[in-house]
């Protein structure tokens, strides 16, 4: 059984033989993940950008980052199931909870770390707060904003796979059900999940490239939740 590589061949055959089933599962997982990212963005972006613009309440961003890293998908789902029936809603809530920390933290750091003199200059030019936000802060923060969104997408797609045990659907349904689909099904679905994760990450990278102002392109921003830039408040957020 150990080191039985031939199962990868069987897995590819399983993918070939079951395009309909797997396609349905891929769509399910994409819908779930997209919904979670969408709600996560709606919740986290205004708070992160707002607090970053005020340059206050950094403890919110720091606490959210700390708790966000510590939350295991399984634990979030477990607690969710205690209070809600198994199904789409509980899984969606769990995924939103996991998507919010990276988006919020990076939005806060990205906006709040913009050079204070730049903002001062914008204000001196007579820009309103809204204009400063739209024309100065958001473009300058966009590398970090997207670093956070990419981390959130990676978290959510991975967690959506695990969420199958709570009725979330998606490719995880096949992975956790070896009894029905066999080892070749489990491995086949795992391969597809990898492809799905790479594709989602790639799509966000392309969007990032399209919306990032030209002079900022190619500037590599490290996710503030994962990498501690020297000089940043509290060394690691």
């Amino acid at each position: 059984m150990i080191a039985d590589i031939s199962v990868f061949g069987d897995a590819l055959r399983f993918i070939q033989d079951n395009p309909g089933l797997l396609w349905d599962k891929v769509v399910e997982q994409l819908e779930l993940s997209a919904a979670a990212i969408g709600v996560g963005l709606l919740v986290a972006l205004p708070i992160g950008i707002g607090l970053g613009h005020l340059r206050r309440y950094s403890f919110v961003a720091i606490s959210v980052a700390n708790v966000g890293r510590a939350l295991p998908t399984l634990a979030v789902i477990a607690v969710g199931i205690v209070f809600l029936p198994v199904g789409f809603t509980v899984v969606l809530i769990a995924l939103v909870v996991l998507a919010v920390p990276p988006i919020l933290t990076n939005a806060y750091v990205g906006v709040s770390e913009i050079d204070a003199e730049t903002i001062e200059a914008a204000r001196g030019m007579g820009m309103t707060e809204r204009q400063i936000l739209q024309r100065v802060e958001l473009p300058l923060a966009s590398p970090l904003l997207f670093a956070g969104i990419r981390t959130a997408v990676v978290f959510v797609v991975a967690s959506a796979t695990i969420a199958a045990i709570a009725g979330g659907g998606g490719l995880g349904d096949v992975i956790v059900n070896q009894a029905s689909y066999g080892i070749e099904g489990v491995i086949g679905a795992s391969i597809l999940v990898c492809g799905l994760a790479f594709a989602c990450d790639g799509v966000v990278a392309i969007i990032q490239r399209l919306v990032t102002p030209k002079p900022l392109r190619g500037r590599h921003a490290e996710d503030a939740m994962l990498v501690a830039e020297p000089g940043r408040e509290g060394a690691a957020l």
Partner: peptide, 22 residues
Amino acid sequence: ALVYTIPSLALFQLLVPVTGLT
């Protein structure tokens, strides 16, 4: 970064044929 992007459940399962349930 590529490895980090792989969903954990999938990575565990893909390693099972190589290193077993260990």
